[in-house]
């Protein structure tokens, strides 16, 4: 069964602005779906519709088997939502927040306390449970927000930029938790600014631009779609050897214009060719000084599909994979 399914989902605001313009999504139960898009592309509007915070003006959307418009109450029972960075009350303690969330979901007090304690332990906040949220660090707040979203054991979890602004260690902790939840069967719908996050967590990625899905697929497939990996190499002794080297490389793939004194070749058959190339160069007596395998990134996909870089992409990976 699809955990999230939309058909021609649309939202028009006053003044005729179509923030979301016919989106079809099908997220399977147990999947982690990464939802990417530049600012103003319709990302937030889509999430707000799927979480019943905004009614669609066109099309349909079902979450956990219920219609978001006509069965909003049922949807709310099934989903967990960690929406925004600041949506926590600084005056409450972590424990109180979890308990309030449990009460709002109609859990009996003992059951809520029990689950709350377990969740606080799970996200590593047992020590801080009785401190006010105002004293928490950014990472602690996100972990608390995550725990609060889980208190009623939702089958679909919506995470809106769960690690934006976090340090790498805190980000890692959230990632591990999300992976674990997913392994336990929770479907996760994740928006993010970080390509690394989508790459690392998402089974599939959808890219939205101007209110429409412009690309969808596994990260690997999307990357393969925009280009093949290429090899960048420099020789220990450049003088006069370049032509010979290019000749060798041409046997493996299309040579690309050289860059910064490095020779580039696109690999027709992917990374498996790296070994044979090194062997072939060695046989020609060409000593290699450095060798980098460069994979297309999700940012390349993003640029290709939307014409824009993803915010935060300069912070994301561009690192060449050592060959």
């Amino acid at each position: 069964m699809a955990a999230i399914e939309t058909q021609q989902l649309a939202r028009e605001f006053e003044g005729g602005i179509k923030a979301v313009d016919g989106v079809d999504l099908a997220v399977d139960a147990g999947e982690i779906y990464g939802f990417l898009g530049p600012n103003g592309a319709g990302k937030t509007t889509t999430v707000r519709m799927l979480t019943t915070l905004l009614q669609p003006t066109g099309g349909r959307a079902q979450v956990a088997g219920f219609d978001v418009a006509s069965e909003a109450g049922e949807v709310r029972r099934k989903i967990g939502v960690a929406l925004q960075e600041a949506a926590l009350d600084p005056l409450m303690t972590g424990r109180e927040l979890i308990q309030l969330q449990a009460t709002l979901h109609g859990l009996a007090r003992e059951r809520g306390n029990e689950l709350g304690d377990a969740l606080l332990g799970r996200v590593g906040l047992t020590q801080a449970a009785d401190r006010r949220v105002g004293t928490y660090s950014g990472g602690m707040r996100r972990r608390l927000d995550l725990a609060a979203a889980l208190v009623h054991e939702p089958s679909v979890l919506f995470l809106d930029e769960p690690t934006t602004g976090l340090d790498p260690v805190s980000r890692q902790a959230i990632w591990e938790e999300v992976s674990k939840l997913n392994a336990e069967g929770t479907t996760v719908f994740l928006t993010t600014q970080y390509l690394e996050e989508a790459d690392r967590l998402a089974d599939r990625v959808g890219i939205i631009a101007s209110g429409r899905i412009v690309a969808e697929g596994t990260p690997a497939a999307l990357k393969a779609d925009v280009g093949k990996p290429h090899l960048e190499l420099s020789l220990a002794d450049q003088n006069g050897n370049e032509a010979r080297c290019t000749e060798v490389l041409a046997r493996f793939g299309k040579p690309l214009p050289s860059k910064d004194g490095k020779l580039l070749v696109e690999l027709e058959h992917g990374t498996s060719e790296v070994g044979p190339i090194v062997v072939a160069l060695n046989e020609e007596g060409l000593a290699v000084e450095s060798l980098d395998l460069v994979q297309p990134t999700l940012d390349d996909v993003f640029v290709a599909k939307t014409g824009e870089h993803l915010e935060g992409s300069e912070a994301a990976e561009q690192e060449p994979v050592a060959g």
Partner: peptide, 12 residues
């Protein structure tokens, strides 16, 4: 601050 979204997204 977005706190009210938390309440609205609950089944209460």
């Amino acid at each position: 601050h977005g706190w009210f979204d938390r309440l609205l997204a609950s089944p209460a």
